[in-house]
Design a protein around this nucleic acid. Sequence first.
DNA 1: ATATACTGACTGAATATTCAATCAACTCCC
DNA 2: GGGAGTTGATTGAATATTCAGTCAGTATAT
Lengths: 203, 203
Amino acid sequence: MTQLPSFLDEPDDTRGAIMKATYDALCKHGYSDLTIQRIGNEFPKSKSLLYHHYDSKDDLLLDFLEFMLAELEGQMPAYRDRSADEHIADIIDRTFAFGSTENNPHFTQALLELRTQAAHDEAYREYFTRSDRFVRKHVAHTIQSGIEQGVFQEVDPQETAALFQIVFVGTMTQRVTSDDDDVLRAGRAMFDQCLRARLLRPE
Amino acid sequence: MTQLPSFLDEPDDTRGAIMKATYDALCKHGYSDLTIQRIGNEFPKSKSLLYHHYDSKDDLLLDFLEFMLAELEGQMPAYRDRSADEHIADIIDRTFAFGSTENNPHFTQALLELRTQAAHDEAYREYFTRSDRFVRKHVAHTIQSGIEQGVFQEVDPQETAALFQIVFVGTMTQRVTSDDDDVLRAGRAMFDQCLRARLLRPE
DNA sequence: ATATACTGACTGAATATTCAATCAACTCCC
DNA sequence: GGGAGTTGATTGAATATTCAGTCAGTATAT
């Protein structure tokens, strides 16, 4: 039942099709073995067409990165009418479910492969720095609300969000690069306990 | 003052020299742009010699991975005669210092680049799965001691070690792939607080 | 008929790998 | 002790493959 992310299913426009092809090729071969040829192979149209829509391989991949980050940010759950602790619980759920067998493991893999390029590529690093900030702001804001609502103790929202960020990328990296599936389950259990101990207001 | 890791300084044997050359080339160009030619450029001897010692590029890189993991495991601080909470504090220190500007940022970068290959390379994944287990066992053992010594509350050592693992890879990934240097500082502050709240026995 | 989407064949550069040939050291026999 | 054979380290040049990018031209839709 592990299917293609919906946002890539049956793309109608050419760009969508190219994104899907890139996604498939990236998952199949990994970033370091990702070639225009291989993207072309996953693409219903011809390889040359890619150059009709993009100036270069770099150009294409940068657009793909933008596409992926937009999707990631779009997955951020809306605050809506829940209480802050329910919302935080949801975020934790999603953090640890991110990339699990039921939920697009390949999306996570692709994202990590892109992310690692940031080690050497200035442009990539800027994208991720920006995207991280967006996510952290969202989390910090939720924490802040929780404090105001009186459900959380008085913690520093920025620092808390930063820890969430670290745990998020840690989960992602761990899931994609290790076979040991118990680490995430166990780590989450302890993370829950720790957060409860520090964050939740005793009733 | 950010110098070469000592374990790569002035290698006397050929293998050591190849490892150093590979390390240098990897840091300089990144995994996806790592070529035999470039390794050869960092190598005092000729490029062809690499094939005398290794069957293929893959073969060489796999040996390099083994080399790096051995080094990583060797960096694990010894328990010695300290109390468990001092030792844990040391581990946290090292976790968040890992790859910081003073401490071989390139080593961390290289390690992450290798690690990401595990996403689509079975052999790499096995190596990291094993290495992770080694580190977790060490941490779990320390926690266990702490509980027996009465300095820690009764937590599950496996779960605690798992959280350490996630935070460790998260720190590593974050440091290498983002420009925002405050995340680690802030995340650590909150992690300290959370751990204290859950782990430390109130005096 | 014009522009836009699209294709398959092609190219030069880069890349991994191989090869034929030195060279230095070591062994073994007399 | 010294020559003859063996082995491993080393090299520069050669080979086969892969890759990003181009181009001349075909289809298609307006």
